[in-house]
Design a binder for these strands. Sequence first.
DNA 1: CGCATTTGACCAGCGC
DNA 2: GCGCTGGTCAAATGCG
Length: 167
Amino acid sequence: MSHCLFSVSKNEEHSNSTDGGGNVERNSRHVGEDPSTGRDGGRGEADAFVGHKKREKRERRPRYAFQTRSQVDILDDGYRWRKYGQKAVKNNNFPRSYYRCTYQGCDVKKQVQRLSRDQGVVVTTYEGTHTHPIEKTNDNFEHILTQMQVYSKLNNTSSTFINDMFQ
DNA sequence: CGCATTTGACCAGCGC
DNA sequence: GCGCTGGTCAAATGCG
């Protein structure tokens, strides 16, 4: 583990892969037989009568992506994460995991993706900011940050979001 | 018993 | 206009 930092280029979307296909995810299978329940569809819970406007399509939530070298996808950053989905992306032969903060009111989402090229490298993307203190003080977390390298920053003009995180 | 995790399916947005 | 990908939800199951 000597190589802690990596110099990531912007080749996040390149790889070969091409074609796409290949998978059989789309199996028909009888779906819900009772539409009246409004099941599936994910966000159908609100039905069409709610005055909601689709929850602001343009989420302005800050998104931070880091690349960490870890053998496990689950990095304990001190918060409790609940896995809510897993999907395989084309660019990566490995499936991407989606995690969400279990804290009520904390809509922070985290997505973990492993590089098909370097399975030793894990890309963790944090979306949103925690609105609650850390449950457990993970001293190791600080160590992780040392290995963590921000290679892509979307939204937010802050220079060091990490500073904000520790603040 | 409670919580966390897993799997499948559907939807939505975007590209061509 | 259709196809594809990515993303999220929902329910069920297992484990502590």
